[in-house]
Design a protein around this nucleic acid. Structure first.
Lengths: 200, 200
DNA sequence: GATTAAAAACCGTCCAGACGGTATGTTTTG
DNA sequence: CAAAACATACCGTCTGGACGGTTTTTAATC
């Protein structure tokens, strides 16, 4: 595809750099302290330059949100392809992606950004829910069981734990938890869907 | 105990009212939009009055944090007493308290405040981790198993889900999940502690 | 119990800094 | 040269909190 590096300074590169710097600043100092100036400075452009690409703070954070979700989606999709097991297929992929996060890899810090945005803005929260519900609908044959839900909930717990280096974010401990969850999965628990199925 | 309602206007009552109003404003509009003026107005005092009781915004939010943690602690302690089962005792109490949250009860909206504070300020995050680790140490005989950790992680997931009305926050669905987790518990899973035990 | 000193509770105003955003250039690219 | 890609200067607003004053409560003294 090659997004053609236009000779001198590719504006497309500037945009991704802006997003990257914003993400970095957010994981380092939180979401609210994020200022347009700081992002611009970090990315090596002026505030006016930033505003040129993202006409407002919402546009910037929104762009960041889109990018992170897209990345997460691709990760899940990859994990999904690598697993043929039937029950809780999607939820297991979801879990595996989150469990594989290594916060020391800058690439993967993005997930920290996502959780920060989710917990501080109901708007993004709704968009995230929409994403999840779409996948849930797509895999309704396999992922509407209490087991599947538990896998995802535990994944969210791990996710949250990562953010604050909680008592369960230790690599070894995490490995055990993950093992436990996978065993749980294989353990032939009931594959029946939720007893209660109101319309979605 | 009677915290002596000193005649006319109990300053102690004012303090709790300030905290209550702050909590309400936070769950309604988020954490960052919280302003001293809005809290003061809502509580029926002037900004100067607020500053008198809490000398700064940090003092206010810190006081709120303390209150919420204390409340949560008492809830867990109560759930702990009502359950004699051995394995994963603490973690199950933790789960039950969180699962019992009814966001329509103002009293219990506090937990939303907690998660908001945790995800937006690493300082509070550390204090929270400290609380958890203390209890974990206190119940190290029963709550250092992958099962126990899973229960708490799932609880955190539910907690987070509540915040944004996620696909698992539906009462019926939640009931099923909880049931599943409790069965998991009773299901005589291995009671052995984590394979890996590095020093804490 | 009346008087009074002092401490606590509370009010309303003002200010300095921060931030988002605009408006207007200036340079680079095609 | 026209349009995109930047930079610089500037404005309006908001907010934390400092500050000086006022009222109420408490404590001490007589």
């Amino acid at each position: 595809m090659m997004t053609r590096p236009q000779r001198k300074n590719d504006p497309n590169a500037v945009r991704t750099r802006l997003l990257d710097c914003a993400a970095e600043l957010i994981v380092d100092h939180g979401l609210s302290p994020l200022t347009l100036e700081s992002v611009a400075r970090e990315a090596g452009v002026s505030k006016g330059g930033l505003l040129h690409h993202y006409p407002g703070k919402d546009a910037l954070t929104g762009g960041l949100f889109d990018q992170v979700v897209e990345w997460f989606d691709s990760q899940v999709e990859a994990a999904l392809e690598a697993d043929e097991t039937k029950p809780a297929r999607f939820s297991r992929a979801y879990l595996r992606v989150i469990a594989a996060i290594d916060m020391s890899v800058p690439e993967e810090k993005r997930l920290a950004v996502l959780i920060l945005m989710l917990s501080s803005d109901p708007h993004y929260c709704a968009r995230w829910n929409s994403w999840v519900e779409t996948r849930l609908q797509r895999h309704k044959q396999t992922d509407l069981t209490p087991l599947a839900r538990t896998l995802r909930l535990a994944a969210d717990g791990l996710w949250l734990s990562d953010l604050g280096a909680g008592p369960d974010s230790d690599p070894m401990t995490r490995r055990d938890i993950l093992q436990f969850l996978e065993d749980l999965d294989a353990g032939g628990a009931t594959v029946a869907p939720d007893p209660h199925q109101e319309g979605l």
